[in-house]
Structures are given as C-alpha cells and as structure tokens.
C-alpha cells in the first residue's frame, strides 16, 4: 500500500480543519455582542447601556427630525432602528452623507433624560449604488 501515509495525512488534516472551524465558530458566536460596532436605540430603551459611559449609537436619522439651532452649529435629530428612537444632540460639522433617512453612527454618551450627546458623527451608507436620475424616480 503506497498511498497509506498520504491518506493518513489527509484524514488528520480534515480532522484538524474541522476542529479549527468549530472553535472559530464558537468564538465568533461568543463575540457577537462584544464585536458590535455600535448599540441601537432598542438597546438603550431596554436599559442595556450605562448612562455616562462612552459608546456609539447607530441607526437611521428619522425623516423630519433634524433641527438646527440658531447658532448654525448645534443640531438635534432622532435615531431610529424602527423599534425605538433616541434623541441626539451634536455640535460640529457633519459628513456630507449625513442626512435624514440615511444611516448614522454617533459617538458620545447618554446624558440625563435619555438624550444622547454626540462628540463625533459618522455617516453610514447602504450597499446600493445608482445614478442620480434613477434615485429621483
């Protein structure tokens, strides 16, 4: 039997790879909550977050909720994940892609009264790309 060692190596390799994939799947499953880049308004509503602790809040900017203060720099808007909403206040310049009905990630902390005080605003866009004429239709 010339092929024996070759087969033995193949079986060993398959076993090792299976064990490895299993271990990684377990690790990823365990990481699910901790590896999340942001929390959602639902998490805040459910009391999963500590007030005063710095975090990122992600969701969609609610249409019609964006208000600009007379100073021209401070904005207020609501972030929604369709189940809950969180009010956000931010003072500074926003990215070009930040707009109502679009995705947003705000870095900051939860202030008194459930108002989220943001230090940084990042725009999150979705996976769709199209020409402007098509978006207008």
């Amino acid at each position: 039997m010339m092929v024996r060692p070759k087969h033995q190596r193949l079986v060993l390799l398959i076993l090792a790879v299976t064990a490895l994939i299993g271990a990684v799947l377990f690790a990823m499953w365990g990481l699910q909550d901790r590896a999340a880049y942001f929390v959602t308004p639902s998490d805040i509503a459910a009391g999963k977050t500590a007030p005063g602790k710095s975090m990122r809040l992600g969701g969609m900017v609610v249409k019609g909720s964006l208000k600009r203060n007379p100073d021209g720099l401070t904005i207020r808007f609501a972030v929604s994940d369709t189940k809950a909403e969180t009010a956000v206040v931010y003072r500074g310049i926003t990215p070009d892609l930040f707009r109502e009905g679009s995705g947003v990630v705000a870095e900051g902390r939860l202030g008194p009264g459930g108002l989220f005080i943001a230090d940084t605003i990042l725009a999150k866009h979705d996976e769709r790309y199209m020409p402007p004429q098509m978006a207008n239709q």
């Binding site: 590896a35 880049y37 942001f38 959602t40 999150k124 996976e127 769709r128 790309y129």
Partner: peptide, 18 residues
C-alpha cells in the same frame, strides 16, 4: 454577523447586485 460601519455586501449570488 456584527453591526459594522462598513455597509453590507452589494453583490451576492442569491440576491444579485444592488
């Protein structure tokens, strides 16, 4: 799997291209 800043995939075999 995770909430990320990067958007989801645009091209997939099951759903085609967005």
């Amino acid at each position: 799997w995770w909430r990320t800043l990067h958007q989801g995939q645009s091209i997939s075999i099951a759903q085609g291209s967005s």
